[in-house]
Design a protein around this nucleic acid. Structure first.
Lengths: 148, 148
DNA sequence: CCATTATAATACGATATCGCACCATCTAGA
DNA sequence: TCTAGATGGTGCGATATCGTATTATAATGG
């Protein structure tokens, strides 16, 4: 199964381009002052349905702690997340999404709806949906490989 | 063919995560001071085998002109690209990859080789390779939708 | 228990990304 | 031909991202 990695590089290249283009599109639809990084954190918090620490989040996203600190402070400033004491570690805190954060997340997805519809009209979505399991496998593998 | 966009959003989500994780991995292997954005430009220049203008590059990547100006100046400073006058537009210039840039590109890919091999060992690469045509279609559609 | 080492979060400064404004050049239309 | 509007690239400043250093706290081992 371990084959020449070149096709893998090419695939990751495609992924990077797709991510860049779709991210720019999405970000243009977010309210002023918000970035994909903000949405990404909210999305993750909803997905895991938990209140992870900044450290855990930084790891999950593979960004430096200071980057995550800054991103979270922006979200907190807008009331989209709140910080709670971490009962297991006095140095730490837990990040919880607020009701406003949930609404923000829903609104952001709604705002990109028309663009996605336009995109779906241009492609074979059924064909593309077939790629989802493989992409999930790839993500899981990358998750397993990341710095702890 | 135009279906509910929700699965599309989910797929783009997976793509964004994969891109973030693989990008961090790749960037860790680049020489100090270099970012994925630098490599991306070199990769693109090799791919199109042409000397596009900064404006065209900024469009292709869907980043602001000033961002591209800054990225290109970094590449030029290291001799990985050079600027040539644009014979068709006195306001503009053409960006050409240098021999050093080609070598840099090759070295960067070689440097990520072991990681890709390790990744390939964890996944069904044949299954994943099957996703490439669909991803290319998606990229082409996004390319068609982008701001001109 | 205590000393050493490790770790979580943040202050701070450097650089990357971004938007606004500007100037030189180009394009389009009267 | 000329003028108004548009465009390419960059200066400049604001913010996002990043790395170093710091402090408080936790973990580990003798």
């Amino acid at each position: 199964m371990a084959d020449t990695p070149e096709p893998l590089f090419e695939l990751l290249n495609e992924v990077a381009i797709i991510s860049q283009l779709s991210g720019s599109l999405f970000e243009a639809r977010l309210p002023d002052g918000f970035l994909v990084s903000h949405f990404g954190v909210l999305n993750h918090l909803l997905r895991v349905n938990d209140a992870p620490t900044p450290r855990t989040l930084a790891r999950n996203f593979q960004v430096p702690k200071t980057t995550m600190t800054h991103t979270l402070s922006g979200l907190a400033r807008h009331g989209l997340i709140r910080f709670e004491p971490n009962p297991r570690d006095g140095r730490s805190k837990c990040v919880r999404i607020t009701e406003a954060g949930r609404r923000f997340h829903g609104d952001a997805i709604a705002a990109i709806g028309p663009d996605l519809a336009a995109l779906a009209a241009r492609i074979d979505t059924a064909h593309l949906a077939g790629t989802l399991p493989a992409l999930r496998e790839l993500r899981a593998a990358l998750d397993a490989m990341r710095d702890v």
